[in-house]
Amino acid sequence: MHLVFPAVLAALLFCVGLYGVLARRNAVLMLMSVELMLNAVNLNLVAFDVWLRDALHAGQALTLFTITVAAAEIGLGLAIVLLIFRHRGTADIDRVGRLADGDETAGDGGEQQARDDEKKAVR
């Protein structure tokens, strides 16, 4: 097989994931785009491992490690997103500008609550 096919597919997949990370607003959707980018890297690792016929199978071992790290990452990432959602009532990245724990001004929280209520009413 021509090496260009998997390499180009991996590059395009990475760029699709890049677009998703930059353009999405929901935190869970951003995590999904990160998964796409990680998978593009995995495809590259496997293709080059098969091409080079590495005696230690370094590419495939690293792919397994990447899959494990990605699983750990999505578990922790979702836990953090859920925590933010529980605190602020939203998973929108654009509306989580401050990292302060509970020291936000009351007006800000009330404003967000009002906006949420407004959205629910529209729906």
Partner: peptide, 27 residues
């Protein structure tokens, strides 16, 4: 985001195609 992704895709695909134009995987 669209612009950044398009630029990255153009750069990467050009680079990869140029680098591995005559490389074949033995399956």
């Amino acid at each position: 985001a669209f612009g950044v992704a398009l630029a990255a895709a153009a750069t990467l695909v050009t680079l990869v195609v140029d680098a591995f134009r005559s490389t074949w995987i033995d399956l």
